[in-house]
Design a protein around this nucleic acid. Sequence first.
DNA 1: GATTCGCACCAAAACGTTTTGGAGTTATCC
DNA 2: GGATAACTCCAAAACGTTTTGGTGCGAATC
Lengths: 334, 334
Amino acid sequence: MTIRELAKKLNLSITTVSRALDGYSDVAEETRRRVIEAAQEMGYEPSFAARQLRRKRTDTLGYILPTSSPRFSDPFYTTFLTGLCDEAASQNMDLLVTSSPPESEEEKEQYRRMVQSHRVDGIILNRTRINDWRVEFLTEHKFPFVALGKGKTEAAFPYIDVADEALFEELVAHLSNRGHQRIGFIGTTPSLVIQQDRFAGYLRGLERAGLEFDPALVRQVRLTENDGYLAARELLALPEPPTAILGINDLTALGAVRAAKEQGIYIGTELAIAGYDGIKETEYTVPPLTTVLQPTYEIARTLARMLVELIDGQIPPDTVVPVQPTLVIRASTG
Amino acid sequence: MTIRELAKKLNLSITTVSRALDGYSDVAEETRRRVIEAAQEMGYEPSFAARQLRRKRTDTLGYILPTSSPRFSDPFYTTFLTGLCDEAASQNMDLLVTSSPPESEEEKEQYRRMVQSHRVDGIILNRTRINDWRVEFLTEHKFPFVALGKGKTEAAFPYIDVADEALFEELVAHLSNRGHQRIGFIGTTPSLVIQQDRFAGYLRGLERAGLEFDPALVRQVRLTENDGYLAARELLALPEPPTAILGINDLTALGAVRAAKEQGIYIGTELAIAGYDGIKETEYTVPPLTTVLQPTYEIARTLARMLVELIDGQIPPDTVVPVQPTLVIRASTG
DNA sequence: GATTCGCACCAAAACGTTTTGGAGTTATCC
DNA sequence: GGATAACTCCAAAACGTTTTGGTGCGAATC
């Protein structure tokens, strides 16, 4: 079912058929009606490849899922992906998804392909790194992209700025108000922007509370439940263990919960634990976990919308959208 | 950066360049080396649109996420999606993802577009319906697809058959062994294959245990945590409430957990609760939830692989892959 | 010395659209 | 009544590949 066959059946030129369907004004209403009707009836749909080739637009957004472990499953990403999907759909765009481990050769290859073969019109980045080669690569190729968080770069691109630092400061203040003096921090590799921001917030929180920073209370691990578990075990095995543990995200905090339970430590009374993201799991632990609720779904939608607007040249590349998450205090911090 | 420019720079015809890169044997090794080197250096990558148009292949798999609520987030799907992504990647394919509410106009439109505009080479279906118009539509258009579960249809297509019925039977047996006589079932709309199978397993389980089926103990809701919560509240408010509740999936079972907690009912002793899927959350509840562990990640990978093989004509359309999940008994059922 | 063969390359067609730059017809204006 | 405008429609080019059906040339074969 090509436009040619449709045109033949209607005794029209393919030009007219194309323009009728695209809503141009230089085709008679009566003709348009006939064309649309026939198209519907014969189930005609323009070939995407052909249209893409000619228009030089793909109407597709790209997203590369950073999969730490092969069987990874951070619920944060279901929500994030759904947000991207929904917004893309409502903008008449599709979403092309790939997955690869961060900083792998595979990842590089995938970005290269997406960009250089014009697979997509723009790319959504998250888990931005401090010195992110993706940012360099994409700006160098003048390829439209938006990101969740900005690293250390001269490049200008639209991004969402979550007030991570402020919220971590607040978390520490909250714990210190509850009398905690030794507050542990399960962080991740310093190459990630979230580590930079959240750790900075942690430090500022300590300072403001007049607490001394003890490097022994800090761990840097991958962003998985299991790594959180292992890190927490280490912290709890210290000669002077912390009385509170902050996870850089909910997943690591949940790992800490598991470690504490395993050792029969009462969470909330003997040990305070808090996370960050606001994933559903934090409601089910006993006691429920204090966390910072990010509007993940809205963030994703906003990112997708920003990307579309960037592609259409409707927003400047230096657009910044601030997001203020909210502290959700639950029983895990007493 | 087109093949033409590359050819010009190399003083070769575009034919030779194309064939050199595609590994044809009718190009001298020395020439191929030069071509590959130049391509790498100049960052040439074939235009996807052009290639697609000519080859009549997209090297893309399609998947439409069934989003019940706009902000939905069933962790089952992160795992499922990651599986699809990973397998697609390892087959040199990409994954095109869209989302829409089941049985909506939007959904129809999306399937129609994907198929008729040759957006993808094949489609992965899950949450198969008993009389699934998608199955009819896709077979009618001779469009390659695979599914998780098969409905009531004459059509032949590769699918994965999870032994849902047997496992639900086992679940009921397990509960009846623990002395439960009134076992509730939070199911979903009978139009879904999983409802059909799992409910059948529930019934057979009752029968085998010599228990009478009481329709009052059955609810049909959407597959969300909140609907599970509401259904459980209803069940617990009955004059003769059940002593055990089976959720058709973990999400609804988690809703039941919430309802029980809210009413101060001790789970595991006063009320048994079990789910199905094996999502991570079930480990965090107190007590941890009895569930049926499906190898979701592997199922997704297998589906993707089957689809690629179907497209390549390497497997017949009537391939069936059976999957045997495992019962995971935890404290929530005593 | 003519024929055949294998090797390395290539021109041109095809894929199915959108867009450009008109062309033909009828209505409108002075 | 001739020029202008408005309205419909269209032929052909272009998008960047892959594929088809070659060509030219030197070596091997008879």
